[in-house]
Amino acid sequence: MLFENRKQLSTLLLPAIVVLGLLTAYPIISVVYNAFLSVDIGSGQHHFVGMANFAELFDDFFFVTAIQNTLLFTVVASTAQVLLGLVLALLFHRNFPGRRFALPVIIYPMMISTLVCSSIWRSWYHYDFGFLNAAFVSVGLPPQEWLFNPDFALYAIAIVDTWQWTPMAFLIILAGLQSVPKDISDAAMVDGATGWKSTLYITLPLIQKQILLAFLLRSIDTFKLFDKVYVMTGGGPGNATETLSMFVYKYGFRFFDLGMASASSLVMLAISLAMTLIYAKRVMKGGKQ
């Protein structure tokens, strides 16, 4: 009875629908439409080419590599971020001396501009003059190749992304922990569940949704990986760090080839939707009375 009122509902939803509709209806339609066209940016002339853009994309082994790289990066980086974020959130859920100061420090990396953040790490990864190799050598380890090893470059970028964005997973999960009603956690205490057992069986199920949400949001963002590659490797060495966003950027903003840019972003959209639909469904569902 409380939640049957259609008029209330439309009042609640209308602002979001208007804003998003206004801003994205035209862009979305034009992406779908352009994907099947060949567009000349100068004259604005275009003609229908059917699936030709898609055929060309999948014919290009750089594009196929980009799909593989992007998927690998998404899985590695988002998993690392959520796991690390979860551990940190559990650590921060308990009080300790100086927690008030440690929290801002932990979340500081995500406040730093991505350009600055990527530059810091680019300098750190330098083979001859970087901080990391200097540190390695000083403790007797051999210097590492980092960015120019084609087998490691993508992971090197994943490390940077994890450094910058673990705080996001951390904050989402921490906020979830903080929202767990007192009586439930107190009840757990009374029942005598302690330490990791209580964490595993009582706390984790309670913040399952936040963990999934962190996964969902981080997967979407890591799937769009662009700036870090652009600053650090340009997609190299070879095509080790070529990503789908680099591809879309190249076609959209360097060649202004709207047909190919739209086709590649549709492919991108399809993959990321397929990949995240499982989490998305679980985040959406459940708890509805």
């Binding site: 330098h126 083979y127 001859d128 190749e145 960015l147 120019f148 490797t233 340009g234 190299g236 060495p237």
Partner: peptide, 21 residues
């Protein structure tokens, strides 16, 4: 060339000239 020249851009080129390496 220096190791890692595959990811060298203007910064690294200038740095290695200026350092004399």
């Amino acid at each position: 060339a220096p190791k890692g020249v595959d990811v060298y851009n203007a910064d690294e080129v200038r740095e290695s000239l200026q350092k004399g390496t």
